[in-house]
């Protein structure tokens, strides 16, 4: 699963979009974990066809903390869906960890998501009938190669880390929004994915809670080098990411880099 056949054509195909940025704090050259080549996505909407993505080229490197930023209908959710392997492009190619998703069947895509991707949803999407612990445990059960002890250890560690160990036996609907999103983060991380995709993770939270959630994810990004990609138009998130990937009418614009955390390649902070 974790074979590294990242095509070197990726960079050649889109020289203009993303220059060779090395955004990680890790030493050495970061690996290309997500590569999009001329991705087009069209939806039929009644009798007309809507083109949500009009030819996207993008490379994400391992350990990046990035956000796709755009207005509603700009195509940012569609872009995230492509990367999340929950939707397939109409044309163009998407590589996740070197695997081209367009060539995978449903079963393989499911495994790809299970082992490589973590999801944090705007609406948390926890299974209400299961406890906090069980929600977080779910991806481990689906992966299936963990003993009970291992699962207990790993889930409890994560719950401790997101500050909810005391709530492990609660049901999601007994928790606040922020707490639920923490559970969601724990669930996204428990399978040790390469990339965590967070779709508007703060949209349903107040500003203080939203900040705490961003702090938590940033901390995880720092310590575990997990790649985070957000879709957002929340200023608080935008100001915290390393790379801002603006999207407008299905096309990417010049990325921007926050310098607060990365000295190298820092551009001006305006969008």
């Amino acid at each position: 699963m974790e074979h590294k056949s990242s095509p070197d054509t990726a960079q050649k195909a889109n020289p203009g979009t993303t220059p060779n940025t090395i955004p990680t704090t890790r030493s050495g050259t970061a690996e290309e974990i997500v590569v999009l080549q001329n991705v087009v996505k069209q939806y039929p909407l009644g009798k007309v066809t809507v083109e949500a993505l009009k030819g996207i080229d993008l490379v994400l490197y391992e350990g990046e903390f990035a956000a796709v930023v755009g207005a509603s209908g700009s195509g940012k959710s569609t872009l995230l869906n492509m990367i999340g392997c929950v939707d397939l492009p109409t044309s163009g190619r998407v590589f996740i960890n070197g695997i081209e998703i367009g060539k995978q069947n449903d079963k393989e895509l499911t495994r790809l998501r299970l082992y490589n991707l973590g999801f944090i949803f705007q609406t948390f999407n926890l299974v209400n009938v299961l406890s906090v612990f069980q929600n977080v445990e779910m991806p481990l059960l689906l992966q299936g190669n963990f003993t009970r002890k291992e699962r207990l250890l790993r889930v409890d560690q994560l719950l401790d880390r997101v500050g909810l160990l005391t709530h492990r036996n609660h049901r999601p609907n007994e928790l606040s929004g922020g707490q639920r999103q923490r559970v969601s983060i724990a669930r996204a991380l428990v399978g040790k994915p390469k990339i965590v995709l967070a779709d508007e993770p703060t949209a349903n939270l107040d500003s203080v809670t939203g900040k705490e959630i961003i702090d938590l994810m940033q901390e995880i990004n720092h310590t575990d080098h997990t790649t985070f990609l957000f879709s957002t138009h929340d200023e608080r998130v935008v100001s915290r990411v390393q790379r801002i990937i603006p999207i407008e009418d299905g096309l990417l614009k010049q990325p921007q880099y926050n310098d607060a955390l990365n000295t190298a390649n820092a551009l001006t902070g305006t969008r």
Binding site: G84, V86, D106, K107, T110, R111, R113, L114, Y115, L117, G118, F119, F121, N125, V127, N128, M138, P139, L142, Q143, R187, A188, G191
Partner: peptide, 16 residues
């Protein structure tokens, strides 16, 4: 519907 979608997204197979 949403719950099923979520389970699918986080890696539950059709058999599950």
């Amino acid at each position: 519907y949403g719950e099923i979608g979520t389970l699918r997204a986080i890696g539950a197979s059709r058999n599950v």
